[in-house]
């Protein structure tokens, strides 16, 4: 992970402090979001599929909007890089597993590497569906993704 601790990011000097590495990392990734290779109508050509390794991700800037593309189990998934809770850059959160609802004092680990935990408040989202795992209605916005005939990852926005 690249760090820029020596360089203070303008506008971030509001009490989070450089101790909070997760947040620094979050903003860093957002600000470094790569431009897409090209935009064709509603198709955003992100990069070659080979550039995103298994378990990896790429954030891509589409105008003022940021979108995260994840590769899990060989498939690609795209989420709007905004947490529906407080607007945090959701797609720079860590990927975790979680526990399925279970009987009392039983633990049923599930969805390893598929649950995106928001970098700010820790709310859980399933990358594959965008569904929030904290209540009935919450979800992160998702976009259709495909790999085209050139081997490029294409997000339809």
């Amino acid at each position: 992970m690249k760090t820029n601790n020596n360089q203070k990011t303008p506008g971030l000097d509001c009490g989070f402090g450089s101790e909070n590495k997760a947040l620094d990392y979050a903003f860093q990734l957002v600000e470094e979001a790569a431009p897409p290779k090209k935009r064709e109508g509603r198709d955003l050509v992100v990069c070659s599929a080979t550039e995103i390794p298994e378990g990896g991700r790429r954030t891509v800037a589409d105008g003022k909007r940021s979108i995260g593309v994840f590769r899990i189990g060989g498939q690609f998934y795209a989420l709007l890089n905004v947490c529906p809770h407080m607007g945090a850059p959701l797609c720079v959160g860590k990927l975790h597993g979680t526990h399925r609802p279970s009987e009392v004092h039983e633990y049923d680990p599930a969805f390893h590497g598929r649950i995106l935990r928001c970098p700010w408040h820790g709310w859980e989202f399933d990358v594959m569906t965008g569904k929030g795992l904290y209540d009935r209605h919450g979800r992160a916005a998702t976009f259709p993704v495909r790999v085209d005939s050139h081997g490029d990852v294409v997000v339809t926005v």
Binding site: P101, H105, E106, C118, H121, G122, W123, E124, Y134
Partner: peptide
């Protein structure tokens, strides 16, 4: 806290 930490008490199926 439930929204972030639910996974630590996965038997809680409601708020």
């Amino acid at each position: 806290n439930y929204k972030a930490l639910r996974s630590m008490a996965p038997w809680l199926k409601e708020l």
